[in-house]
Simulated scan of single mutants.
Amino acid sequence: MAFDGLAYTETPGDRAASLRDDPGWVDEQLGRDDTRTVPMWHDGPLLTAAGLPVTLTGRAGRAVLAVASQTALLGLDGTTAHFAADLTGVDEARALRLANAYTRADLRTLATTLPGPVMAMLAYARGLLYWNRHARFCGACGGPTESTHAGHVRMCHAPDCRRQLFPRIEPAVIALVEGPGPQPRCLLARHRGSDPDGFSVLAGFVEIGESLEGAVRREVAEEAGVAVGAVTYRGSQAWPFPAGLMVGFVAQATDETIAVDGVELLEARWFTRAEIVDRIVNGPGSGPADSIGGRLLRSWAGLDPTPECEPGRSA
């Protein structure tokens, strides 16, 4: 079984995909008093003085939508449409005034304070708005593009091109590598630029022409010099920083030899389960609270409360 409850994954059930290509319907929703608008500024949500994400309706919502450089449909809650609005085109002070907001936040700092569905909605908004802002020109001919399908497609304006652009997603793998032999051990590595005790599980982007499992084997071999055999899927996570999809695995090393590349990794070593428990309970922890990497490590250490994450059980 795979992980449940990962950050940024509880997206709205109805994304209204069949309605996005109806401009009349989209315009009608943008003008409704009950439509809910989530303003963002430079990829971060705007917060109230109580630390909650601002959501606007009625006249206030329409005022923000009128100024936004980009809007994107997030979905329907019953019959109520939710839109994201990008206020990056105005300065921060004006964005805060328009949204009647107190401050702007980095999305990842909110991961442990807001409910899962709210974090997922904000991550969805961040990813869509970021992509629209960075896809203003066609990659095939260089012509300007226009947002269509309620922010989910961009169309090249060049008459001899008219290429459709879709939101870019960059898949990456992240793996907890178990050591060979009877004693439970896992591989953690210290990346360049990390703290002296900043050990974490290994991760890397998937390359063209390889499977997810193949990417795990290649990344671990390239960076840590460790050969990997069996690779077992554990879960996936939206990771809009800026456009990732993080796919988590547990991998079985076939040899304990380590030879770090010295480029991505500065060092790597095997940790016993007792050492991992001590690191999580008394030391530097298991890594970022919003990352599937930390979940993989806590699961392996037996500290994850979810039954399917018990040590020794396959996913």
Rank of each mutant, 00 (worst) to 15 (best):
G235N: 08
A238G: 12
A221C: 11
E213Y: 00
S211P: 12
C161V: 09
V177K: 01
D261M: 03
L176H: 07
E210M: 03
L188H: 07
E178P: 03
P196Y: 03
P240H: 08
T232N: 04
E264T: 15
T272N: 05
E267V: 00
R168N: 02
I174M: 10
E210T: 11
D197T: 08
I169W: 12
Q237C: 02
F166Y: 14
P184Y: 06
A251Y: 02
E223G: 00
V201Q: 04
A268K: 07
G193D: 11
V220D: 09
V263D: 13
I208S: 13
R190M: 10
G225Q: 09
R269H: 15
W239A: 13
G235K: 00
F249W: 06
F199P: 02
W270Y: 05
L176N: 07
L266G: 11
A224Y: 10
A215G: 05
R163E: 12
I174G: 05
A268G: 04
G262P: 14
P182H: 09
G204I: 10
E264S: 15
G193Q: 04
L187M: 09
L176I: 13
I174R: 04
L176M: 11
G193L: 07
F249R: 00
V177D: 02
L266Q: 15
P242W: 01
G198A: 05
A259R: 15
G198P: 04
P167A: 12
I258P: 03
R162F: 12
P167N: 01
V247G: 08
M155L: 15
G248D: 01
R269F: 11
G229A: 13
A251V: 01
S236R: 12
L176F: 01
L187R: 03
R168K: 07
R192M: 06
P171F: 13
L187V: 11
C156I: 11
I174F: 02
V260A: 11
L165C: 01
I169K: 08
D261F: 00
E178A: 05
C161K: 06
E170W: 06
W239S: 14
R162A: 14
V206R: 14
Y233F: 15
